[in-house]
């Protein structure tokens, strides 16, 4: 049996760990709150933008834009969006697994795959395993639309230049605090817009366009990419902090459990020590009385 002193030391250590996990839980909670606020603030922009984009797409007969060009998908590019920091449960592991599976499948089909890593965890994992052509790390703690724009600037010119044929975005979709779903969406060529959207076809009937509806749509498409990337970034950020909150909450309660079982052990050890001491004294007294 471990000595009293050892157990005591262990209890203090676990208590300290508990303090840390509790603090991390609270930090993650406040970050989660601000991430959620950001999502709420983005909603009016996104819905207004989609509204206009969809109804514009309905007005334009045929769209021809470099971002809509369908080519034989031989070279594939993947954006893998993870968090920068760990200690958030299975958040990154699940996403990285999904990405790895996806890449393996594509390679098995004889495609060429290159990777853009957003977030340090993904970059670290794929550093030796995949062909990373661009990376954005340590950016997620504080970001705005400029980050989405810089990611888009990374992928749009090279797609137009036909350096690759298809682009996929893999990120964790935010379902709720404890559930994040790895999701794969195709960014380029952009899926057709306005087909399944629920829009009022007469909404822009009496409008004049400046420039023409076609030209306007063309200008809005890169912005659409920004919207998609920004939304994924927001979901990643909210998901990361939600996952960390849950993980740290778990860790804190595990610490509590450990502390209570260790305390019980410690009390037993102390009691045993006292009993042993008493036995000694009794034995000693008896020996003295006999002598």
């Amino acid at each position: 049996m471990a000595s009293l002193k050892d157990i005591k030391r262990k209890v203090t250590a676990v208590q300290k760990t508990k303090q840390i996990t509790r603090a991390m839980n609270m930090v993650a909670a406040s970050k989660f709150k601000s991430a959620q606020m950001k999502m709420d603030n983005f909603r009016p922009y996104a819905s207004k933008f989609m509204d206009v984009l969809n109804s514009l797409a309905l007005r334009v007969e045929t769209m021809s834009h470099p971002l809509l060009a369908i080519r034989d998908p031989r070279r594939i590019r993947v954006i893998c969006m993870t968090s920068d920091r760990g200690l958030c449960g299975g958040f990154n592991t699940n996403l990285i697994k999904a990405t790895e599976r996806f890449i393996k499948e594509k390679i098995k089909d004889g495609k060429e795959v290159s990777l853009i890593a957003v977030g340090r965890k993904g970059r670290d994992f794929f550093r030796k395993k995949a062909n990373i052509i661009a990376q954005k790390t340590d950016v997620l703690s504080k970001f705005d639309m400029t980050l989405a724009v810089s990611v888009a600037d990374e992928v749009i010119p090279s797609f137009v230049k036909e350096e690759y044929d298809e682009l996929y975005l893999i990120y964790n979709q935010f379902m709720n605090v404890s559930v994040q779903k790895p999701t794969i969406v195709r960014l380029f060529p952009l899926p057709s817009i306005g087909q399944d959207a629920d829009v009022d076809p007469d909404r822009f009937l009496d409008y004049a366009y400046e420039p023409s509806a076609e030209a306007l749509l063309e200008r809005l498409l890169p912005m659409y990419v920004h919207v998609l990337v920004y939304r994924a970034l927001l979901e990643t950020s909210a998901g990361e902090n939600g996952a960390r909150m849950a993980a740290m909450d778990n860790a804190t309660s595990n610490c509590e459990e450990l502390i209570s079982s260790l305390t019980l052990k410690m009390n037993k050890a102390r009691q045993a020590a006292i009993t042993a001491e008493l036995m000694d004294i009794v034995g000693g007294t008896e020996a003295l009385a006999k002598g």
Binding site: V52, L56, D206, Y207, A208, E210, P211, L216
Partner: peptide, 9 residues
């Protein structure tokens, strides 16, 4: 106020 309806980039 009273401008004709239009959409511009």
């Amino acid at each position: 106020r009273g401008h004709e309806a239009f959409l511009s980039s």
